[in-house]
């Protein structure tokens, strides 16, 4: 193992079912149902997944959902907007906690 993250490891995901396979099976069943066409299209779900992949900063998910977005007809412009949405929410979430910082500052200040 030369790197913690190996590209080929993505295809080894099913190995997680080596122990307690029933848990993995339940997860996969849930996962596939979630990602299937529903009120949202597969294309829309792939864009959401791409945004979330960036916030959890998982290289496997970024790899998988970049491909999934392209394969469901999205283009780099739309994908970039999805990543900006993720960044905006993450940035906003950081900033809104500034109110807590104000609260603490106000509390301890004379």
């Amino acid at each position: 193992m030369s790197h913690y993250y190996e590209e080929n490891d993505l295809e080894r995901f099913a190995e997680l079912g080596r122990y307690r396979p029933e848990l993995f099976e339940i997860f996969m069943n849930y996962y596939q149902n979630v990602m299937a066409e529903g009120a949202l299209s597969v294309r829309e779900k792939a864009l959401i997944a791409l945004a979330v992949a960036h916030t959890v900063q998982c290289p496997y998910c970024i790899d998988a959902y970049t491909r999934a977005c392209l394969e469901s007809g999205s283009n780099p412009e739309e994908m970039t907007e999805a990543v900006h949405v993720a960044a905006a929410i993450k940035g906003g979430a950081t900033l809104i906690h500034g109110v807590q910082m104000h609260n603490v500052t106000d509390k301890v200040s004379i």
Partner: peptide
């Protein structure tokens, strides 16, 4: 596709 990936389902891409 413009690269090393598969095309979307034909009917869906047609709508797009």
């Amino acid at each position: 596709p413009v690269g090393a990936y598969f095309p979307p389902p034909q009917a869906e891409l047609e709508i797009l």
